[in-house]
């Protein structure tokens, strides 16, 4: 139990340190409202994708197909929208079409999740291989459907999802906060959430205790797919387009964000709050570096350093405690 909290403490320290550093180096820029808003614009997609990754990691699995899922889901929605609505002259009743298109996109994402779930839970394929295959397959489908072209020209109403601001808060952030809240609710307060942790720790024992592992895993991968789909909606809205291969570099980052937030790579432990915290750190760090004029790639390297630092500190503190006990 102790080591789980210690990650949050380390993260808290790092956040404060980074904030202080940024403020010292660039006091005029860093804490301006506009800047904070700007930060919040990039967070949602990565955040939703990380939630999609984390929930599968809690069951002791992984979902390498989230980015591919998001792309296919975004492409389906964008195809329906561009086929049925001319963005310059939206036909009456286009609201219904938009909802239909979004539902179709999300359903696609959930369907891929279902397939992952069946492979993992019913056929008993190791999650990393099942979702790796699914990733390549779905990537292939996105290329086949788009033939490599960009699908652009979405109606204004859709663009609001990623770019709109309500009461000074970007719409994407609101969606992310809502989704993170729902995920926290599922994990902490529902039977499904409880079972996700149990299956993640020891599937044999949970099975012997009457938990329907198959159902739990399938639901988990469907949720994972759905969250990737929601991320897709924000993504296509922000770019005003959909295409194969968007956001592929996010994949490994979502694993980093989850682990940094205290999700155990072996499954069974991890909290939404930790993930949100780690996302905020990653985002602040990259925005800060951005303002300092440092390349985005140094940010990526920096993320790598942070995660190794956290793991090393954890390891050493566990060793020290062990020695104290002895």
């Amino acid at each position: 139990m102790r080591s789980r909290h210690s990650e949050l403490i380390i993260l808290g320290c790092i956040t404060t340190a980074i904030f202080a550093l940024m403020w010292v180096f660039n006091p005029n820029q860093f804490l301006r409202i506009g800047n904070l808003q700007n930060m919040a614009f990039q967070l949602p997609e990565l955040g939703l994708l990380s939630l999609a990754m984390m929930v599968t990691m809690l069951t002791g699995g992984i979902n390498l197909s989230i980015i591919a899922t998001a792309n296919l889901s975004g492409i389906v929605t964008a195809l329906i929208l561009t086929a049925m609505i001319n963005p310059d002259a939206p036909p009456p009743g286009s609201g219904g079409i938009i909802i239909l298109a979004i539902c179709a996109g999300l359903l696609t994402a959930m369907l891929i999740g279902l397939l992952n779930g069946i492979l993992v839970a019913v056929i008993d394929v190791s999650p990393i291989l099942a979702t790796l295959g699914m990733m390549i397959l779905v990537n292939g489908l996105t290329i086949v459907i788009t033939k490599g072209y960009v699908i652009s020209g979405l109606p204004n109403a859709v663009r609001f999802i990623g770019n709109g601001v309500v009461l000074g808060i970007p719409m994407g952030t609101i969606i992310f906060a809502l989704c993170a809240g729902i995920m926290a609710l599922i994990l902490n307060l529902t039977v499904l959430g409880f079972n996700i942790y149990m299956v993640g720790s020891n599937p044999t024992a949970s099975n012997f205790a009457g938990v329907n592992n198959t159902a739990v895993l399938i639901k988990t991968y469907i949720i994972s797919g759905l969250y990737a789909g929601i991320a897709a909606m924000i993504m296509i809205s922000r770019f005003n387009s959909a295409k194969a291969g968007y956001g592929e570099s996010y994949l490994l980052v979502t694993i980093l964000a989850s682990v940094l937030g205290g999700t155990s790579a072996a499954g069974g432990f991890g909290k939404v709050s930790g993930l949100v915290m780690s996302l905020i750190i990653l985002q602040i760090a990259s925005s800060g570096f951005n303002l300092l004029g440092v390349s985005a790639f140094l940010t990526i390297a920096f993320w790598g350093f942070i995660i190794i630092l956290v793991m090393v500190v954890n390891f050493i503190s566990a060793k020290v405690l062990e020695r104290k006990a002895a």
């Binding site: 039977v191 409880f194 079972n195 942790y197 149990m198 720790s201 020891n202 044999t204 024992a205 949970s206 012997f208 205790a209 009457g210 938990v211 069974g268 432990f269």
Partner: peptide
Amino acid sequence: VQGLVMQQSVANNIVITILHRLI
């Protein structure tokens, strides 16, 4: 291996069979 989820808490192991009744 079969009887308990060893890493999880005593509380969670006790309610795992009856959680659906506690909602």
